[in-house]
């Protein structure tokens, strides 16, 4: 099966005080139809920059994609003109953001905002688009869609705003949905509803989803495959079940041990010492080495992502040598 999105060797750099520094370094990611890939990492790991690079939504100055390609539908998105790109955004690839209130237009009704994409990309008439907007609101389980379609965003609750965002994103039946922390601002009961909605929509439409989050609990809920990012690199990738059952990279393992769990008693949490290095001060060898408990002399050389099992790769020479004995 050819993947819907196939990112190869993507490097995105930002200008910091006259120097270019990589926020994302040599990322390889692919996601298939009817699959949810979770990209998990802490702040500064480059997970959002990866999504913004895919859609080329980075600022025009001070940021550049310096290497790599973003394969989508047989084309390399990094090579397209701005005009071609704007035909893809919101049409073949859609994105939803963390804060629904700041991403929605407060002066337009929710229905008009859903219809906007249909008018532009699908050339629908106003009546057709309005009808489709109502159907979409119903599909994302907003109660009483016929009335709600004429409401403004401020009349919606937080959970409903996020549903409206999802409806806007899905309007043109995208093949790929980029979701950047879509449930972080929501309460847990509403988060559970939105996660199950996204899962159902993926199944119904055979969509590919890239789900960006910092919450490993959410990852376990929704992902088919997981990529763990740290300081601009993917340090481990595996199927969801494998990653949680058998984490290989020391960072993945440490993250799991640092997370307070609701379902079992942990006598003491094990914090990770130090903090994520800033993009202008990334260490030369393994980026995680300064915070790692298992450092060896070999960590001074920059490690590459190597297979440690079926569909399971990790960027750690110390652990990879021992095979799966983690």
């Amino acid at each position: 099966m050819t993947p819907v999105l196939d990112i190869k060797g993507l490097t995105t750099e930002f200008r910091v005080k006259n120097g270019w520094h990589a926020a994302v370094r040599g990322i390889d990611l692919s996601v298939n139809a009817n699959e949810t890939l979770a990209v998990v990492g802490e702040s500064g790991s480059g997970k959002s920059v990866t999504a913004l690079s895919t859609l080329r939504l980075l600022p025009q100055t001070g940021a550049r994609i310096s290497r790599g390609e973003v394969g989508f539908g047989g084309r390399d998105l990094t090579k397209l003109s701005e005009r071609e790109m704007s035909r893809i955004r919101g049409n073949d690839i859609a994105m939803i953001f963390q804060e629904p209130m700041t991403s929605l237009n407060p002066t337009m009704t929710v229905g008009d905002q859903i219809a906007e994409g249909l008018l532009i990309h699908r050339g629908m008439s106003r009546t057709e688009a309005a009808k489709e907007a109502r159907r979409l609101l119903d599909e994302v389980r907003v109660p009483d869609p016929a009335r709600r379609v004429n409401d403004y965003p401020h009349q919606f609750s937080g959970g409903m705003r996020q549903r409206a965002m999802i409806a806007i994103a899905l309007a043109c039946r995208p093949k790929l949905l980029l979701a950047d922390e879509p449930t972080t601002a929501l309460d847990v009961t509403v988060q559970a509803q939105v996660l199950s909605l996204l899962d159902d929509l993926k199944r119904d439409r055979g969509m590919a989803i890239v789900f960006i989050t910092h919450n490993l609990g959410v990852v376990a809920q929704i992902a088919d495959r997981v990529a763990v990012m740290y300081a601009g690199e993917i340090v481990e990738t595996a199927t969801c079940d494998t990653l949680f059952a058998d984490p290989v990279h020391p960072y993945t393992e440490a993250l799991l041990k640092a997370m307070p769990r609701v379902d079992r008693k942990a006598e003491s949490l094990e914090p990770i010492p130090g903090s994520v290095p800033s993009i202008s001060a990334r260490p030369a060898g393994c980026v995680y080495a300064p915070r790692c408990n298992y450092v060896q002399p070999s960590c001074a050389a920059h490690p590459s992502l190597v297979p440690v099992g079926g569909n399971h790769e990790a960027r750690c020479p110390v652990r990879a040598d021992k095979g799966e004995a983690a």
Partner: peptide, 25 residues
């Protein structure tokens, strides 16, 4: 109970079974 069941756990084998609960606060 709802709050407890909705809280995600880092374990894919215990996914939230029933998030059909509708309604918001």
């Amino acid at each position: 109970m709802l709050l407890r069941e909705s809280s995600p756990v880092p374990d894919p084998t215990s996914r939230i079974a029933n998030a059909k609960m509708t309604g918001e606060i």
